[in-house]
Simulated assay, not measured.
Amino acid sequence: MVIKVYIATSSGSTKIKKQQQDVISFMAVNKIEFEECDIAANEANRKWMRENVPEELRPATGNPLPPQIFNESKYCGSYEAFFEAREDNAVYAFLGLTAPPGSKVKLLNTNTYR
């Protein structure tokens, strides 16, 4: 299973850039295998991300903004959901991964963080 983080490398938003970097840094530091999928440079990535964020979790107006996180094709959540899971020590459950031995984690219902 590969975690896919949908990002926009050419975003003009400082907030989006910081959120993307936060997710990517966390993954790298914790040695979680992931793939960056750029929606700015690849139209297919942009279309796929927009179509696969669940309807009930899309913004009322406009399109879902990066970063959006998937485990293969299963939607995990947005940055806000990631942040909340990280604060609760539940990122592995949020990502649908088994925590490595010795990790400080909580078990949870994976629907909690959407």
Rank of each mutant, 00 (worst) to 15 (best):
V23C: 03
P100Q: 06
K17R: 10
Y92T: 01
L65V: 08
F94T: 02
N71M: 11
L107W: 02
Q68R: 08
T9L: 15
T61I: 15
I24R: 10
F26V: 01
A85T: 04
C37I: 01
D22I: 01
P101A: 09
R50G: 08
E56W: 02
A40F: 08
K4P: 02
D38I: 11
I24G: 05
V5F: 14
K106E: 15
M49N: 05
K17P: 01
N45W: 04
W48G: 00
E87R: 10
C37L: 11
D88P: 03
N42A: 02
N42S: 04
F94M: 04
P66L: 05
L95C: 03
I16F: 05
A44P: 00
E72D: 13
K47A: 12
N71A: 09
T14E: 09
Q21S: 07
I69P: 00
I39V: 15
F94D: 02
F83K: 14
A81C: 06
A60K: 14
T61C: 13
S11M: 06
I39D: 00
P54Q: 14
A8M: 10
I32C: 05
R58G: 06
A60S: 12
A93W: 00
N45R: 04
R50A: 13
A28C: 10
E80P: 01
F94V: 04
G102N: 03
V53R: 05
P54L: 03
